[in-house]
Amino acid sequence: MVGSVPRVDAATGSHHTEEDDMARYLLLKHYRGAPAAVNDVPMDQWTPEEVAAHMQYMQDFADRLEGTGEFVDGQALSPEGSWVRSDGPGRPPVTDGPFAETKDLIAGWMVIDVEDHERALTLAAELSAAPGAGGEPIHEWLEVRPFLTAPPTVTE
């Protein structure tokens, strides 16, 4: 965030800013695989005006969060895609299956940098209300995932 004040952690002696205390979350929009949205009409059945209204809502939401310093990045995803694997030297194999395909599951994502988990949930709920068919809110389920900030620890 702009204007962060550096401070020293008393326990470690390391320098960091208030910005370091922010938490990054992934807001993941699904095509399917989540519970059905209230306004459950697939986007490929929307009118061009409904798609435009939805996209404008998403842009306005991102612009507002950019203004508060909470927006990191976000993208809608194209339905095209491939699976690639390295088998060592040479050209990697490329296939369109038979894997569970994220292109069939994930519509897009947004990364936010917020003060706490509650703020992430509040913003996800707001994003869930983007308009869909008939201009009515979708009320879709969004997956809210925190970024891993430290390697997991193993306890015995």
Rank of each mutant, 00 (worst) to 15 (best):
D104H: 11
D96S: 15
F71P: 00
G108C: 01
H117I: 10
P89L: 13
F99A: 09
M110T: 12
I112K: 06
G69E: 07
I106P: 01
G97F: 09
A100K: 13
D96L: 13
G90S: 06
R91C: 01
D73T: 02
G74D: 04
D73G: 00
A76E: 05
G97Q: 10
G74Y: 06
E70R: 01
V84D: 03
M110R: 08
I112V: 15
D63V: 10
F71V: 00
P92E: 05
V111T: 13
D60E: 13
S86F: 09
M110D: 05
P98V: 11
G90K: 09
F61I: 11
L77M: 15
V72N: 03
T102I: 02
S78M: 08
T95K: 07
S82L: 13
E80C: 08
G108K: 03
H117D: 15
L65P: 06
G90T: 00
P89A: 15
G74V: 10
D73I: 04
D73E: 01
R64D: 14
P98H: 13
G108H: 00
I106S: 06
V84S: 09
P92L: 02
E101K: 10
D60H: 07
L65S: 01
G69S: 07
R85T: 14
D73V: 02
V94A: 05
G74C: 07
G97P: 14
P89V: 15
V111C: 01
Q75R: 15
V111L: 15
R91F: 03
A100C: 03
G81T: 14
G69L: 08
W109L: 05
V94P: 02
Q59E: 14
T68Q: 07
T95C: 07
T68V: 10
K103Q: 09
M110F: 10
D96K: 11
V94E: 00
L65G: 02
W109T: 03
D104T: 05
Q59F: 06
V111K: 04
G69F: 05
A62Q: 00
P92H: 03
W109N: 01
G81Q: 08
L65A: 03
T95M: 13
D87E: 12
L105I: 09
G67Y: 11
G81E: 12
E101P: 05
E80N: 13
A100Y: 00
S86Q: 09
V72S: 01
A107S: 05
G90L: 08
S82H: 09
R91M: 08
E80H: 06
P92A: 08
L77A: 03
F61R: 09
G69D: 09
T68A: 07
L77G: 00
S82I: 11
V84P: 04
D104N: 10
L105K: 12
K103M: 09
G97A: 06
A76Q: 12
D113R: 13
S78H: 10
R85N: 11
T95H: 05
V84G: 04
W109Q: 02
D113S: 12
G81C: 10
P93Q: 08
A76N: 03
D116Y: 04
D60T: 14
G97M: 11
Q75A: 13
